[in-house]
Amino acid sequence: MISFKQVHKRYPGGYEALKGVSFDVAEGEMLFLTGHSGAGKSTLLKLIAAIERPNSGSVLVNNQNVGVLKGGALPYLRRNIGIIFQDHKLLFDRSVFDNVLLPLQICGFDHRESGKRVRAALDKVGLLKREKSNPIALSGGEQQRLCIARAIVNRPAILLADEPTGNLDTDYAREIMAIFNSFHQVGATLLISTHDESVLQDGGVRRLTLKEGVLQ
């Protein structure tokens, strides 16, 4: 599903975030990406969604080299990838419901069908009762769950989560991991970056560890 081959990423200014990273993720696999902050976890996730491009090496998603994808093809790649951002990237000028609606509007979903889907996604993350609230009124954990709802409403094949449990206490973190596990069970491919030890306790999940841009 996802394949990195000798990927180098250097930012303007000379900082080398990734140095020759290679790995494969099978379809339906769930994977943890760990390492200290600054180890290159966020960069690695951004390369998958073509938010950043590699300087050398190739990033394949569904056998498509996304590093050389043309601008016009990017939207269709990203519709297949749900991203849970570290800073949530919620829109505070609209309701919880409308935040989750946005990906469906972008794909041109029918109005009634999309209403059902939004409620199903909100139900899944336990925010159905808050659909009319403004996201600013939500707690940190709720905002994180809203971000998850927005990422999954479109039923993407791949979910990327950047520090989804950062700044959350253990109970919240466990709830969120439970949500991820349920997606794993229905066949989604998940790549979760975290340095949260309580999350990493989860048994049987493959772990990639980055250290200064190199896979350990």
């Binding site: 990017l74 939207p75 790649l77 991203i83 972008i106």
Partner: peptide, 16 residues
């Protein structure tokens, strides 16, 4: 700006 950025991240075409 925020809305445009988010829309681009979740797969909005330029036309949209």
């Amino acid at each position: 700006r925020d809305e445009i950025e988010v829309a681009k991240l979740i797969g909005a075409t330029d036309g949209f």
